[in-house]
Amino acid sequence: MESKRKLYIIEILGILLGLLWLAPFYLMIVNAFKTKKEIFMGVLGLPEQLRTENFVEAFIDLDFMQSLFNSVLITGVSVAIIIFFSSMAGYALARNKSKLSGAILLLFVSAMLIPFQSVMIPLVSLFGMVDMLNQAGLIFMYLGFGSSLSIFLYHGAMTGISTTLDEAATIDGANKFQTFTRIIFPLLKPISVTVGILNVIWIWNDYLLPSLILNENNATIPLKMFYFFGQYTKQWHLALAGLTIAIIPVIVGYFFAQKQIIEGVSEGAVK
């Protein structure tokens, strides 16, 4: 009886916590369908009628398709490059047992402690000198900032893979690159999913670095939302409609990738 009572209390607390997390989404979606007058009259109530024209106007003013393309391009290319190079670096450092490899790994781990704000001004100045304040430069910066944690995770995962696989591949005539790409990398799928999720969340939602590098024509969705809110400071019905449109790609992306995400996390937990 006591255990059931505790279970009921936990369920009630879980429901209350879930409602607390969903409250901002409710306010955003409900007020996105209202007029500006209705929002000022009350933000909690339902709209008198669903004003879909708010979304049409916000979609056009956001230049949503171009912003979506910029975000997908920068995030996809950055994450793919981070996974490719970080996995190779983690493999090389894990298989090389010298003191130098240990020092290099320590250097990568130490780099995670450096705050971006302390290097952003000289970094932007340096990239401005070589004319790389564009999408390619931004992707290159993401590779640098995202590699430290990714290499650390890959290095930890590599310690659980036996070196006998490398030896068997070498006996069969494979070189180091073939051994990694055909034997080792497929075994790193769980940690690759984890690295991908962490970097996608970070890069997709990043505002500060794109705001320093990109212009308005190449703006990502978070950067475009900043311009949008600046343009419609008092027109909250349009701003909230634009914000609702901006989160749709994330929801759709998770809907299609949830199987891979759950499998990767589950396999990583079991391993």
Score class of each variant (00 low, 15 high):
124 V>S: 11
103 A>L: 15
183 I>A: 07
60 I>K: 15
65 M>Q: 08
120 M>R: 13
225 M>T: 01
235 Q>H: 10
4 K>Y: 09
246 A>L: 03
219 A>N: 03
231 Q>H: 10
177 F>S: 10
102 G>K: 14
30 V>T: 13
14 G>A: 08
83 I>P: 01
64 F>K: 02
104 I>C: 05
93 L>E: 08
87 S>H: 09
177 F>T: 11
31 N>H: 05
174 A>D: 05
231 Q>P: 09
149 L>R: 10
5 R>D: 08
153 L>H: 01
192 S>Q: 10
82 I>N: 02
151 I>V: 14
221 I>V: 11
117 Q>M: 13
75 T>R: 01
49 Q>C: 10
217 N>F: 11
22 L>T: 07
37 K>Y: 00
175 N>V: 04
26 Y>W: 11
213 I>Q: 02
116 F>I: 11
227 Y>H: 10
34 K>Y: 00
106 L>M: 14
125 S>A: 14
27 L>E: 02
242 G>Y: 00
98 S>W: 08
264 G>A: 07
109 V>D: 05
101 S>Q: 06
247 I>F: 03
3 S>G: 02
213 I>K: 02
169 A>N: 07
210 P>Y: 04
69 F>D: 04
237 H>A: 04
205 N>F: 06
169 A>E: 06
60 I>M: 11
49 Q>A: 13
214 L>G: 06
21 W>P: 06
33 F>P: 00
211 S>G: 06
142 Y>T: 02
25 F>I: 15
263 E>A: 12
188 L>F: 06
39 I>S: 00
101 S>A: 15
239 A>T: 12
82 I>T: 05
129 M>N: 08
250 V>F: 03
122 P>L: 08
74 I>D: 00
251 I>W: 00
204 W>F: 14
